[in-house]
């Protein structure tokens, strides 16, 4: 039954989407086709689909570890940004730009920066009892401003005609595409490993079980002696590491350089992916593929039909609304209660 909710929610989103398109004066069927089918109609489309799904799935896996323990890291966007910044810093300024060590170093830098950015809210929550939702979110704004500072100031490419962007990363700092015609690159294997790791952790490890208990029954967890602060640290660091790596893979993959806008909102969309995937590793894969399609479709209809790309965010929101509502019908049974007519009826009710 738990599988039914995402499917039902997706279908309802499609229906609302059709009504929405119709009300805008677009024939719903061709528009839905342009939104959801056309992007996947070519090899390039499939490559883009996986390319965009990869960071979403990766980040959602990390976030779900925390969500299971009721640790609400909603600042993955900032951790992603810091990961991309640190990785690009290594790529740009490492003394030997041809070194084969460059990519592994960038990986470590990206992961480390993401974890460091998440460690601050983790410390504040574990030690100072500070709400991690607000802190992670505020830190996202700070990370975005820091990126803007770097690309407008010290890291601006001197040969870049004053555009706010860094120099291109050296070739050794980039993931080579599988095929030069398409952008999909081996960083997708990182995501595959992350999904397996997440599955092992949540479904096969005692620590993962303890985290789930902390989330589902905090009092029971405390009674059993599971430390809440451990759940906070692990939850936030897992999300930070995943988002940092995703940022690194984005910088060393499709981006190739930093600019003020490096993410179309992967960090926020990944929250929805985690929920669609029911905080479960394999569910997240499906959720990420669906969400990636929403991004692609949004771009597609923007180009072909002139519809605004904000549609992607609207659909994301609607999808999450329906998913949450669908849960209700799965976890509760609806019963009509008529007002009691006399005391006897009241007793038997």
């Amino acid at each position: 039954m738990r599988v039914a909710a995402p499917v039902v929610a997706s279908l309802l989103t499609l229906i609302v989407g059709s009504i929405f398109f119709a009300s805008l004066g677009h024939d719903p069927l061709p528009t839905l086709y342009a939104f959801f089918i056309e992007p996947l109609n070519s090899l390039n489309g499939l490559s883009e689909w996986l390319l965009k799904a990869s960071p979403l799935i990766l980040i959602a896996c990390g976030l779900a570890v925390g969500f299971r323990a009721n640790v609400w890291n909603i600042g993955a966007e900032g951790q992603f940004t810091m990961g991309a910044i640190a990785a690009s810093g290594v790529g740009l300024f490492w003394p030997n730009p041809d070194s084969v060590l460059l990519l592994p170093l960038m990986f470590i830098a990206g992961m480390g920066a993401g974890m460091a950015w998440a460690a601050i809210p983790a410390f504040l929550r574990a030690r100072m009892n500070t709400n991690e939702i607000l802190v992670t979110l505020m830190m996202t704004y700070i990370a975005t401003l820091f990126l803007s500072y770097l690309v407008h100031g010290p890291w601006r490419d001197p040969a870049g005609f004053n555009y706010p962007q860094t120099a291109l990363l050296p070739t050794a700092a980039l993931f080579a595409s599988f095929d030069p015609a398409y952008r999909l690159n081996p960083s997708i294997f990182i995501t595959v490993v992350a999904v397996l790791l997440m599955w092992l952790f949540t479904d096969r490890s005692f620590l993962g079980y303890k985290m789930s208990v902390s989330g589902a029954a905090p009092l029971a967890a405390r009674y059993a002696g599971f430390r809440e602060s451990a759940a906070v640290w692990i939850g936030l660091l897992a999300g930070g590491a995943a988002a940092g790596i995703a940022g690194m893979a984005e910088a060393a993959g499709p981006l190739g350089q930093l600019s003020p806008q490096i993410s179309p909102g992967y960090g926020f969309a990944a929250i929805i992916v985690a929920f669609i995937g029911r905080l479960n590793a394999f569910g997240i894969v499906l959720g990420g593929l669906l969400m990636s399609l929403l991004f692609l479709g949004g771009e597609g209809v923007q180009m072909t039909l002139g519809l605004p790309s904000a549609l992607t965010r609207i659909f994301q929101g609607i999808l999450l609304f329906f998913l949450l509502a669908a849960d209700f019908f799965i976890f509760y049974r609806i019963r009509l209660i008529r007002p009691a007519r006399d005391t006897h009826a009241l007793e038997t009710a």
Binding site: I74, F268, I271, I272, P308, A310, L311, T312, R313, I314, F315, Q316, G317, I318, L320, F321, L324
Partner: peptide, 12 residues
């Protein structure tokens, strides 16, 4: 969260 994302999309 859904409302925050939805509202930003609808307003845009």
């Amino acid at each position: 969260l859904a409302l925050a994302i939805f509202g930003s999309g609808v307003s845009a």
